[in-house]
Design a protein around this nucleic acid. Sequence first.
DNA 1: CTTTTATGTTGACATCGTCTACATGAGCTT
DNA 2: AAGCTCATGTAGACGATGTCAACATAAAAG
Lengths: 199, 199
Amino acid sequence: MTGPSKRPYHHGDLRRVILDTAMTMLAEPEGVNFTLRAVSRRAGVSHAAPYKHFEDKAALLTELALVGFDRLTATLDKSAKEAPKGFRSKFFAAASAYLDFARQNPSLYRLMFGGEFGTISAHLDPRALKTFDFAVALIELGQRQGQVRERPSRGQATACWAQIHGLTMLELNGLLQPEKVGDNATELALSTLFEGLQT
Amino acid sequence: MTGPSKRPYHHGDLRRVILDTAMTMLAEPEGVNFTLRAVSRRAGVSHAAPYKHFEDKAALLTELALVGFDRLTATLDKSAKEAPKGFRSKFFAAASAYLDFARQNPSLYRLMFGGEFGTISAHLDPRALKTFDFAVALIELGQRQGQVRERPSRGQATACWAQIHGLTMLELNGLLQPEKVGDNATELALSTLFEGLQT
DNA sequence: CTTTTATGTTGACATCGTCTACATGAGCTT
DNA sequence: AAGCTCATGTAGACGATGTCAACATAAAAG
């Protein structure tokens, strides 16, 4: 299903190869500080080849961030599908899936939300906003089930996203260790918000 | 009170001058992508001079981040002092001060929490943890006033920090515009958490 | 078959972070 | 006061990077 859709020119899908290579290097220790030239080398093309597919390095990073949003949204959708149908289960399943995604892709997650790589524009992209749409849908489900207050769903979804995003950042930065914040700080923080949502 | 405390050597306080210059450049459009050599130029010293005071660029950035935490903590302390003595007032005053700090120093704030500049170590520094201590103290005040549940204060402080940090990131990334999240999303998100804290 | 044009390569340029060798002068030792 | 020492600052170099312009090539359009 992921085969060469067109194989249009000389190399064949170089854009995809560059994207994949860059995504791989993003996951390596060096993180976002990989080099365009190193991507080219690993992809087996000349150092200027990427410029035929991306305006500059920032554009490549922006596309990577958008792919990240695609994957995050897919992960959340999957978690919602697999969880029991109650709002509470889906809420905590989604939070857990979100955190796991960030833990498994820390550099990608930071790139998505960092904003210091010319990536700011990515957040206004529909692909990024789909993640927010997921949160809105979840809240509205809770409202239909009578478990969430009848306040504006987008405002409450903002509260959810802010909470899980904040927790994620603290986790990625190593601040959620038990000796700093106590045991089960993550669960407690999520529960606190959950109770604020409840009717 | 800010005069030359020692003026120890050739230049006199070059370390401080470099730090101030870098902090200024961090606030300019280029943000964190300023150049060490540009800092040297603006400070009027040779391009290698900073290396007598900072191991490398990452060390400079780390120190900037720590200064940021110092300032943030000072801002929060001030807000708590000036607000009425009730927990609710201090909670929302602190949240507002936190958001304002980030709005006025977006690049600095991102540097403090970005983690992709060799800055991760900064979060374990006592100067950074003081910000967390503020949140813990605030929660414990609320508990003494009988307004916050008798759960572990550090866990609830984590919830608060995560929430305000998440909101801040969303705000800095331009996601909190009314047409995206509805009116008063920030206030609603804070209120939701606040109610989760309440007894 | 020829022309066009998207794709890839080569080589160059300015700039960067960092290192090494060297210069300078403040402050301690005598 | 004279000299020494070492922290501080400078000059120059190195390899590497992002990006651009000139050129090469082959797929697609005619």
